[in-house]
Design a protein around this nucleic acid. Structure first.
Lengths: 189, 189
DNA sequence: CGTCTATTTGAATGTACTCAAAAGCGGTGG
DNA sequence: CCACCGCTTTTGAGTACATTCAAATAGACG
């Protein structure tokens, strides 16, 4: 698990073992059971989570009481509510484990310390944030142009493991399709 | 114009006049006439542009020959094709001036030099990239939930200056509405 | 004033949603 | 091991939202 962190850091700058260890010391492992919340609506999101094992969803509940899934998170991904984490305002979303999930937590406090002690980290996080930006924009461009059917087919093709692990109505929510209509689409195909 | 840059840099770290000047020396002004392209599809995007005055659009052309506007850029905003700029792959999009536009260009080469000479810049760009990420996610969440009508009303309310300066069919494109339907919506209202 | 571009209008169509109800499926207790 | 309960998925009818295509009208600019 330290390996994963080491290779993550060394993608965009070179870190000695000491530096990796220093960074690692800011992280602490935590386990959530299925249905546990990593973050509740209304709370300030004080951590980034590096998922070692498991699956989470980030969602909100709208004025009609409907859950809207915004992201999934899976092994080897960082997940957090960026907006709340950065602005330190109460979260509008929930993060919930869909399976028993083990994470490394990185508190905002520790992250700031880490930036101070290992300035090279700024570069790593600058670059990985840029990459996320690209990924989000690319996803948007695809999704906006696609019909519901195409979105679903794309999802199945790109993320087959999610199709196995996530109930269909949650996939529908993520793709902004009603569960009824997704069911129809699957039949037609 | 150096003021704008100075205040931009000092939002997230403190820069001396010397450092600001050093950064400024990496920038070079350039003027584009209305309809000129800052970036062509197929070219690698080698610059970030800080818009001093004017208005640009970033768009692609889909398989049916339709233009799809992805972003607008306006005074005091940075604009670029992130994906091409970062990956150095040919751009899938165009950036075009909708008015006569003056920018400061920052080449990727110069930006890398600047990171080397003024490491604090990593922090500034890390933070501003995070802020962009938040802005994009927030926009998505809003837009996904909104009907065409709501999207248009939101746009008019949030960005009234664009409504003045951008032709209606381009606003339709940006909001993913056909120009015909946007026309209807405006009538109904 | 004429030409080119942008906007509006209208009819027909398609895509996706709502609501209600039925069917399927998995786990739990008897 | 079966029966039941709760949750997920499917089915179907009716409807709303938004698109396509074609054509008319309006506006901007030389």
């Amino acid at each position: 698990m330290k390996n994963q962190i080491h290779s993550y850091l060394n993608r965009y700058a070179s870190f000695s073992n000491e530096e990796t260890n220093a960074f690692f010391s800011y992280l602490s492992p935590k386990t959530f059971l299925k249905k546990d919340f990593l973050l509740n609506e209304g709370d300030v999101c004080k951590h980034k989570f590096f998922i070692l094992d498991g699956l989470v969803r980030l969602f909100n509940i709208d004025s009609k009481g409907h859950e809207n899934i915004i992201h999934f998170g899976i092994e080897h991904w960082w997940t957090t509510n960026w907006e709340s984490f950065i602005t330190e305002k109460p979260s509008l979303v929930y993060i919930q484990a869909l399976e028993d999930t083990t994470v490394l937590t990185l508190s905002k406090e520790n992250l700031e310390k880490a930036y101070m002690n290992i300035p090279k980290l700024e570069r790593v996080f600058r670059i990985t944030t840029e990459n996320m930006l690209i990924a989000i924009e690319r996803k948007n461009e695809f999704y906006i142009k696609m019909s519901s059917k195409e979105r679903y087919e794309f999802f199945v093709k790109e993320l087959p493991s999610f199709v196995q692990r996530v109930p269909q109505y949650m996939i529908a929510s993520y793709l902004d399709i009603t569960p009824e209509y997704l069911s129809e689409l699957r039949k037609k195909k």
